[in-house]
Design a protein around this nucleic acid. Structure first.
Lengths: 127, 127
DNA sequence: CCTTGACTTCAAGTAAACTTTATCTCTTAT
DNA sequence: ATAAGAGATAAAGTTTACTTGAAGTCAAGG
């Protein structure tokens, strides 16, 4: 069982953020010791990693809340949770496609700069 | 020359957002007619598309402001602008890599759901 | 004992990027 | 001549996701 400090060191997530996630219901079943301090086990850690992956891929807190709520409901919600993940997978793939699409535009801009710089170079030689 | 309404229809960007971008200095040289209404030409449109690409790839407004400021300074800032674009290109590539990395985790989760569902199916058949 | 350090809670504050609202002006169709 | 519709400005409001601050609790070390 890890303290909140150990978890911040292990995950890089700030303690207030961990508390915030828990308060918002993103981290089910985090335990406490006798005096009320948080204790994280392996399962908590894997929830944290999972939530982090969802956040890093743009899933809003509210949607993760809903997912965790379904998780708590038990096995009867498995197909809905799977549907959520499938949908999110498609959203990530869409984000990646859009990033590539816009990356192309940046690369085009960079190519223009190459042309511009070589023009300036040639001009300088002429002078 | 297009009115702001025509530009919103062409680009899908709301009029207040176009005004906001201009006020923040992201759109240089947008002209006005005699009565003060905005008129956009081809160059304005390509700025709008460029700014949109930068925003869609996560560049903050403040950084775009700086870029446009450099652009207004003239040719002497070409190498710095190119450096900015190169840096941003690397940031986009990093985002893409991170999305793929986290997509893997989602796919792993989905695979778990497949296993779970087939288990439930088999259990049902047994009963 | 008592102070220090690591927690706790709750409320308020922050940052970024828009968006909305209120008020005003101008052009045009009736 | 006037009412509607498009557009302008400035200021305030909204949303999302944290982050910070204030105030209190508790166990351990000097």
């Amino acid at each position: 069982m890890l303290t909140i400090k150990e978890v911040t060191e292990l995950t890089g997530i700030a303690a207030p953020t961990l508390r915030y996630y828990e308060k918002e219901g993103l981290l089910p079943h985090v335990k406490r010791n006798e005096s009320g301090k948080r204790l994280y086990d392996e399962e908590d850690l894997s929830w944290i990693h999972f939530v982090t992956a969802l956040r890093a891929t743009g899933m809003p807190i509210a949607q993760i809340q809903k997912y965790v709520y379904l998780y708590k409901e038990g096995d009867s919600t498995i197909s809905e949770r799977k549907r959520m993940m499938l949908h999110h997978k498609k959203e990530i793939e869409k984000s990646i496609r859009e990033l590539y699409f816009n990356l192309d535009k940046i690369n085009y801009k960079l190519a223009l700069y190459d042309v511009l710089e070589s023009q300036i170079e040639r001009t300088s030689i002429k002078i």
